[in-house]
Simulated scan of single mutants.
Amino acid sequence: MLTDLPYRTIAIVRGNDRLAALRTVVALAEEGITAAEVSLTTPDALWVIEQARRELGADAALGAGTVLTAADAARAADAGASFLVSPGLGTDLRRAAPFALPILIGALTASEVMDAIEHGALAVKLFPASLGGPGYLSALRDPFPHVPFVPVGGVDANMARAYLAAGATAVGVGSPLIGDAATTGDLAPLRARVAAWRTALTEETVA
């Protein structure tokens, strides 16, 4: 069932080193980013989710991203994910609904938004948001005023403010925030970017 999300920033962790990805997720939580999504394209992503769950505890908002199949969804749930994120709604995912975990389903067009709602999306991942920008989100909100939208793709701090002002429930942010931390494991620049992100957005908005 569609509802408001309890957070405004979803950090998207995607890299090529599982230890670096794990350290990134933990560092984000330490710096106050309360929701993170580990893309299943990251090597050993399920291990990352499992270990992060152990370190962060049962209440952490820890998602699995790039969920493409029902099997992906089941494995993510077993690893300890608390929500799922899919770039779209393929036939296999349609057949899997209703889902065991809350899911953000990717959509771009009005028809895709309706499809996501029909199949029980917690929120609609507007993707790739960069194709239309905040103006497009505003246009979609006219026929869908009660749908929680989470723009993803090309979202930096300036765009995040614009999307939230246009009515987004939350924003998903990847490389503008994560940089190469999930690949190199260099956390100092990550922590600096998180601090800048939190400064650029108000504390109330980021939480």
Rank of each mutant, 00 (worst) to 15 (best):
M1T: 14
M1A: 11
L2N: 12
D4G: 09
P6I: 06
P6Y: 06
Y7F: 15
R8A: 14
T9G: 05
T9Y: 06
I10E: 08
I12A: 06
I12D: 02
I12Q: 04
G15C: 05
N16W: 03
D17I: 00
R18C: 08
L19I: 09
A20V: 10
A20W: 02
A20K: 06
R23I: 09
R23F: 04
V26P: 02
A27V: 11
E30F: 05
G32W: 01
I33D: 02
T34M: 12
T34I: 15
T34G: 12
A35M: 03
V38T: 12
S39L: 14
S39A: 15
T42K: 03
T42H: 02
V48S: 02
E50C: 10
E50M: 07
Q51A: 13
A52F: 05
A52P: 13
R54E: 13
E55W: 09
L56K: 11
G57S: 12
A58W: 10
A61G: 08
G65A: 13
L68K: 11
A71W: 07
A71G: 08
A73P: 15
A73F: 04
A73I: 13
R75M: 10
R75Y: 05
A76V: 07
A76F: 05
A77W: 04
A81K: 07
A81N: 06
S82I: 15
F83G: 15
L84R: 05
L84K: 09
G90E: 10
G90N: 11
G90L: 11
G90D: 11
G90I: 13
T91K: 13
T91N: 08
R95Q: 14
A97R: 04
A100P: 13
L101Y: 06
L104W: 00
A107T: 04
A110Q: 03
M114V: 14
M114W: 01
E118V: 05
H119V: 06
A121P: 00
A123D: 11
A123K: 05
K125A: 02
F127M: 01
P128K: 01
A129R: 00
A129S: 13
S130R: 12
G133T: 00
G135S: 08
S138K: 14
S138Y: 03
A139W: 05
R141D: 01
P143V: 03
P143I: 00
P143T: 04
F144M: 13
F144I: 13
F144Q: 14
P145M: 13
P145A: 14
P148E: 07
F149Y: 03
P151L: 01
P151H: 03
V152Q: 00
V152M: 08
G153F: 00
V155I: 13
D156P: 03
D156M: 01
A157N: 01
A157F: 07
Y163I: 01
A166V: 00
T169N: 14
A170F: 01
G172I: 01
G174N: 03
G174W: 04
S175P: 09
P176G: 02
G179D: 08
D180M: 04
A181C: 07
T183I: 07
T184R: 04
L187I: 15
L187D: 07
A188C: 11
A192T: 12
R193G: 04
R198D: 09
T202V: 10
T205S: 13
T205K: 10
A207C: 12
A207D: 12
A207Q: 13
